[in-house]
């Protein structure tokens, strides 16, 4: 194959990244896929190809429950995050006239501490003797600590939504920034008030950003295992925690691999649905 000069240049430019991606992504992925068709016999692996792992992963109630719960949690998290991110992005794009860079900078402040630390902080805030309970009791709003704050699904949703908010804000902000402001004036000129302008012009044109935000939040949250483990209690455990157990304590890597592949397929198909839905609702945008 003969390559043009630009072609060679381009390949040279991306080759470190490409090599890295191949080694660090494709290779482990191939391994996981392969693993999922093998069987664990205590200390050694039986490399005869089999679908038993998938049968167990899809057929056992506990895995079904965990997968559905993961899906439910990440869908709620995504919905909450994107819903809260949109007004922030809108404010940034339409209302902030000066120092936008400063505002963007402020939004990234949560990243200055590690993810783990942030999850712990939520534990401190939501705990039995935590900041929230102490404060409310101190002010006399409640007599005894609320226990529904921590170690359940709500805590997982709250923590994840907070952690992923900046990731959701930025794509929506970019999409809103790209909207030609004269389109809104045209809509106004043609009779639309502010609310109609928003639903007929702003929102459809911001749809690519909304879809990007949705996917950016949805995909990693399904596989998150730190947050559910730290603040989720038993009700908040998710599929990733089970995968971790299979690869670790349970010493059943093939089953873990089958669970991982299963959740990957589920995420991928949901992503495709969201992508197509967004495209349909947002119309054709170059």
């Amino acid at each position: 194959m003969r390559l043009s000069r630009e072609g060679r240049q381009g390949l040279t430019l991306i080759s470190p990244t490409l090599a890295y991606a191949l080694v660090m992504l494709a290779a482990p992925l191939t391994m996981v896929v392969t693993f999922s068709f093998w069987t664990q016999n205590y200390l050694d692996l039986d490399t005869t190809l089999t679908l038993d792992n998938y049968r167990e992963a899809w057929g056992t109630p506990i895995y079904q429950v965990l997968l559905l719960r993961s899906l439910k949690i990440s869908l709620i998290v995504t919905f909450v995050t994107v819903l809260l991110a949109f007004p922030v992005a809108y404010f940034l794009s339409f209302k902030v006239k000066r120092r936008k860079a400063l505002w963007l900078f402020l939004i990234t402040i949560p990243f200055w501490t590690s993810y783990l630390l942030r999850v712990f902080l939520w534990k401190v805030i939501l705990g039995y003797n935590g900041v929230l309970n102490s404060a409310l009791m101190g002010m006399g709003f409640i007599d005894e600590p609320m226990t529904f704050l921590l170690y359940n699904l709500n805590a997982v949703v709250l923590t994840l939504a907070h952690a992923w908010a900046p990731f959701a804000i930025l794509p929506i902000f970019v999409a809103l920034e790209k909207i030609d402001r004269s389109l809104l004036e045209a809509a106004e000129d043609l009779g639309d008030g502010k609310i109609r302008q928003f639903f007929r012009v702003t929102l459809p044109l911001a749809m690519p950003g909304v879809v990007a935000s949705t996917l950016i939040v949805l995909i990693p949250t399904i596989g998150d295992f730190i947050t559910p483990k730290l603040v989720g209690g038993t009700d908040g455990l998710m599929i990733a925690n089970m995968i971790q157990i299979q690869f670790g304590k349970a010493n059943n890597a093939p089953l873990g691999a089958a669970l991982a592949i299963t959740s990957m397929l589920v995420v991928a198909s949901i992503s495709v649905v969201i992508f197509l839905a967004g495209k349909k609702f947002g119309g054709k945008v170059e």
Partner: peptide, 27 residues
């Protein structure tokens, strides 16, 4: 502007990119 008996042809034309020609005109 949305209650005035005037309509504007913008310098950039401001054609809604997510709508086809008929939906633009019928907006």
């Amino acid at each position: 502007a949305n209650q005035r008996p005037t309509n504007m042809v913008f310098q950039s034309y401001a054609i809604f990119p997510h709508l086809n020609v008929a939906d633009n005109v019928g907006y």
